[in-house]
Design a protein around this nucleic acid. Structure first.
Lengths: 356, 356
DNA sequence: ACGCGCTCCGTAAACGTTTACGATACTATG
DNA sequence: CATAGTATCGTAAACGTTTACGGAGCGCGT
């Protein structure tokens, strides 16, 4: 019977060792599942650790092994993001964690303060060595952070593509595919004057979206008209504003593609104020489905995907780039575009009599 | 001219020291602003550190001083939270950071995985000693986490009150005040049959909300009817469901108080399906303003507050409980209820002809 | 000359782990 | 019986900091 003393506050592995009358090295090996330890003693150690509530001090461990078992997810939480993201991050985080937890990796979120430069913030976080690897989000078209991370030799992956070196690993929603599908559908309905909304910030997804739109038009032989691209915030207000600008045009579009579904709420509101009914007088197709807009009438045609699974994918992209896990997650491609599924509604259900 | 060698990869304070030909102790003191160092040498050290890109290894520092300069904000991101929180956390986080950054404290968010018990998760995080202090959110009515944190002697504050020991520091929205104001307003309009929605989870704010409602009714001599309390998720769907249940009642209420504004969207939708117009046939008052619902017609009567400032307040509550900062943030009270401001709309603007 | 206080700096211990290495006891093999 | 091999364990160094302690140099008053 070793069973000695009541569980006093545990100081460290040393106390645990002398409580068991075993050397500190063996205790460490037992706890970490190293082979050089007798099954019997390992059981004793684990039991005692459980009973005394011992857990390894992360600082000591990190200092020794140079690893923290923590993955960081940097989010900007810029003013626009806060208003729009609609729990985008929390959902993706769920997917990330479902993978990481299998490897005893913890995910923490690193919110960059509004008043700090994201680049400087990231630099600080990298320097602090509080995480083993990083996921960055809201990638800009050219994003200095990629160079910083590459130079610091810290494994990373991006949620969202970027032009800064295409060899960087990332996972991104399939903006190309979505906008292609939307244009195809609208053209098949007879539309040739199709407007599109783009985010007001210089986040890269906006460029990808508009470029895909442009190429899709080209494929159908429709000339690209810059007046058809409306920059607006990705919120209800933004949608309202988009509708406002479109109504003001001389040559009004017959269809509009929105980059974020919340915008549809504002757009519906504005066009209805002018007696225009979506799905009858104007076709509306929106990018990503938001739980919010399910109540729109007529039902919005939009695209859906599992953000949770996107998180899973992104986690695997990252792990394949971490030396300690790369053999477990082999990869041929380091970039993935994540597909979305069309949800047909009634907002683009009417056929336009082709003029020509 | 000390200026030697090109900036090779920095290993630690030791290399920095021998680069400067100064002892390692002095370098440390210089970097940390300790008094026992000549101004001249301090400048040299800081310059060299900047030039060589040296930053202290956090693990080493933490190990030595037992402090990390990191504050953790635990969020549950349960299924319900993910759907509702509507960037609640990101906004509060902004306020938290604006205070913490003044003290060189970094905030990280700790999202508890869906499949892990929050208590166990918190225990792990505490044990890891990755943070100096913790903020927990979504407090339950009885929340074991308070005992855990108290026993671990780690400074903490809660976003949301709890019954588990009223001496714990927290900041919370003024549910009492809001529901009182709402009831008063409705009663003044002649309503006496007032329904209320409550969250389906056992988060404490639900209890506070309903209890406040109950006391307010009592104050007006209106008997409390359990049938008037509808449990539902705090989402559009939940609002839809609330309306559904209310319409099914024999003795329908003439007014309803919602705990979350998003619910109003679903509720509007459902009652309108039955030809009932909010603000004419039924009075609707909602708790917290969400940017989403601004487009509702008729305009919703609800309550607004600055979640950013709530974050500031909460940060100060926490700091006042951390020994290193408590003299800078002295406090008489450790709990604060955060006020909200009524935004009158038209959804409760009609006067009921008092029956009696 | 002596002592005292002050400024500045170097030395070394300590924080809690992990792990390379060697030591011991025991088993199997010749 | 000698030797090699194996299983298990103890020892001690190392990770990068911070900081208590003491020492050197200096000025100044007695």
């Amino acid at each position: 019977m070793v069973q000695g003393g009541k569980p006093r506050p545990m100081k460290g592995i040393r106390q645990l060792a002398e409580h068991l009358d075993i050397s500190i090295g063996t205790v460490s090996r037992a706890l970490n599942g190293k082979p050089d330890v007798n099954d019997e003693t390992r059981k004793r150690v684990l039991a005692a650790a459980e009973q005394l509530g011992y857990v390894a001090n992360q600082s000591g461990r990190s200092l020794r092994q140079g690893t923290t078992n923590v993955i960081g997810l940097m989010i900007q939480s810029s003013k626009e993001t806060v208003e729009n993201s609609d729990n985008f991050f929390l959902t993706v985080t769920g997917g990330l964690q479902s993978v990481f937890s299998r490897h005893k990796l913890d995910l923490i979120m690193l919110p960059c303060p509004h008043d700090e430069d994201p680049y400087e913030y990231l630099k600080r976080m990298v320097a602090r060595r509080i995480v083993d690897a990083l996921i960055i989000s809201e990638t800009q078209r050219v994003d200095k952070r990629f160079d910083l991370l590459a130079k610091a030799k810290i494994p990373f992956a991006a949620l969202g593509r970027s032009l800064s070196g295409t060899q960087h690993p990332w996972a991104d929603l399939d903006f190309d595919g979505v906008v292609n599908c939307a244009v195809d559908r609208l053209v098949a309905h007879g539309h040739r004057r199709i407007a599109i909304s783009a985010p007001s910030s210089d986040i890269n997804l906006g460029f990808v979206f508009v470029e895909g739109y442009r190429r899709a038009l080209e494929r159908h032989g429709i000339p690209y008209d810059p007046a058809m691209v409306i920059r607006a915030k990705s919120s209800e207000q933004g949608g309202y504003q988009v509708a406002d600008e479109l109504l003001r045009l001389d040559d009004r579009p017959t269809a509009v593609i929105l980059i974020y579904e919340l915008m549809a709420i504002g757009l519906y509101r504005r066009v209805m104020e002018s007696g225009i009914i979506p799905g009858r007088d104007i076709a509306v197709v929106s990018f990503r489905e938001a739980p919010r807009a399910k109540f729109l009438q007529p039902a919005l045609t939009c695209f859906r995907t599992s953000l949770h699974d996107l998180g899973v994918e992104l986690a695997e992209v990252l792990l394949s780039n971490m030396p300690a896990y790369s053999q477990e997650y082999p990869r041929q491609t380091r970039q993935t575009v994540w597909p979305l599924e069309l949800i047909p509604g009634e907002s683009d259900a009417f056929y336009l009599k082709t003029a020509k």
